[in-house]
Design a protein around this nucleic acid. Structure first.
Lengths: 284, 284
DNA sequence: TTTACAGATGAGTAAAACTCATCTATTTTG
DNA sequence: CAAAATAGATGAGTTTTACTCATCTGTAAA
């Protein structure tokens, strides 16, 4: 069926509006072009699609049939195009509560300063994202991720307020908050390794667990207690003087933040955002 | 959303076939053209639609979304185009049993001689036709039809075999078959007027009724009786010597054959057929 | 290693889509 | 009732788009 699609579009518009002139206006072309298109269609299909009356055109029976189909067909396509376009205009990020609250949201102000016309929509929560257009920033096993997807390898250290962290060698037990993931497939927080590395012992501490890093960090702030957690998440608090990093060096973990579905989402805005995020996390 | 429709078509094909090369073959264009189209689409939409891997392309998430929509949309349009095309290739005529059996079907052989590549499909019956593409040849009130739709005004006369029609003035009653329409809105067969006009009286005849002219004509043939009916329907039988027209002149009726939905069905084949039908019926 | 293959890229060409000027047949208006 | 206005048709000429060809790249199979 060799009919030209622009001709079908012209027909669809003319059929819907009941006028070649109106269709021409809608399509930003001349009424002559519409007339040519429809004549062309009629010749190729070998049917008259409109009955011409003075100052108006009326669909014939085959015309009506085709009008219904083109109208529906182009509508379907157009809806998808608009959906893609709409989703492209705003950046959607799905991530964990901890990363959102402690890394992403506090930095977002700077992103808007750099790209004032962007709209970023951040969703946190563990539920798997079904939206085709969301970037998923997730915490996972470093070994399982493709190199290109990894944003940053996670390092851990002990944090507290100034007074507490200088008293680590005290005899009285100190409370340490840390994280035990709900998802057991995830590599553990390297508290044991960190203690071993620094010749420390569990016995000096009372270790308490949350299933999200955010909670431990907040609890430590509230109680002036310690928290063993990611350097990424504490950076802003350390800068603000609310937390102090222990005198011991941080330890590498088997964890990383990565972008789950990177290559399915290459829009210009997403690429920009991913780049910015990479830069943000590298600033150590 | 200013994307080119040929580009969308190329995308649809490539998405469905999973290959630019295959899409190119399907569309009878070069693979280069497909590549250009898709690059163009991706730039305008600002999303990557395919992930390129060696020797194959894989849809991204937005690509999949668009593919579903384009596939469905073009399918809808294409189905309608094919339907129109298919219906255009054959001429469909819906008419009464009488007209089909006595006028149309016997003459069809000559139509095929004139237009050997035509396919004519004739449906008879009283049920109203729902097919958008059928020509309806119907018997109706002359006064109610637009001039352009009328094929022929119906005239009536008495028919029988040679012996019977010469004996009309006999004293013994003669049987006359004629028609009383099921549809009471239709003007009556002008038997009374014909009798009056020729100074004849009902008393000379035994009048019997069928609801279709065809039945009366066939009964007259079988019984060597008379039938008062349309000149259009008897023409072939008269020519063949099976029926003889009475010595009295035919009478005009308020009936006509007309084409019900003429201007909704202007395909080239239909136009040809309508013209031929007009000529056929004019030959008196 | 060579060959083959799918697609990318850029420049030039062929083919549409489109516009303009002109014309027709109404319909509206002064 | 004539003049103007309107929607569309038509044909010639122009612009834009779609397309091809030649060339190139990266990868997989021979």
């Amino acid at each position: 069926m060799q009919v030209s699609l622009p001709a079908l579009k012209a027909f669809e518009s003319a059929a819907r509006l009941g006028s070649f002139k109106a269709a021409a206006a809608e399509l930003s072309i001349s009424p002559t072009a519409v007339s040519h298109h429809i004549t062309n269609l009629e010749q190729r299909l070998n049917v008259s699609l409109f009955r011409r009356e003075t100052r108006k055109v009326i669909l014939t029976a085959p015309g009506r049939e085709l009008a219904v189909a083109t109208s529906q067909g182009f509508q379907t396509i157009n809806t998808a195009l608009e959906d893609i376009s709409r989703n492209d205009k705003q950046i959607k990020v799905a991530t964990t509560s901890s990363f959102a609250a402690l890394a992403l949201l506090p930095a977002l102000q700077r992103y808007y300063e750099q790209y004032p016309h962007s709209k970023v929509n951040i969703t946190s929560g563990e539920e798997i994202n079904t939206d085709h257009f969301s970037l998923s920033v997730r915490l996972g096993a470093l070994a399982e991720q493709a190199d290109g997807d990894v944003l940053i390898r996670e390092r851990f250290n002990l944090y507290g307020n100034a007074r507490l962290t200088t008293q680590l060698d005290q005899t009285s037990p100190i409370t340490i908050y840390t994280t035990r993931w709900k998802n057991s497939a995830l590599p553990e927080v390297p508290l044991q390794a960190w203690l071993n590395h620094n010749d420390l012992s569990y016995r000096q501490f009372e270790v308490r667990y949350f299933d999200q890093e955010l909670f431990g960090i907040q609890q430590a702030l509230l109680e002036n207690a310690c928290v063993f957690c990611s350097t990424t998440l504490t950076r802003d608090y350390v800068k603000a003087g609310l937390l102090t990093e222990s005198g011991y060096p941080p330890i590498d973990s088997a964890l990383c933040y990565y972008i789950e579905n990177k290559d399915s989402l290459i829009t210009r805005h997403n690429v920009m955002f991913i780049e910015w995020l990479g830069e943000l996390l590298k600033q150590h």
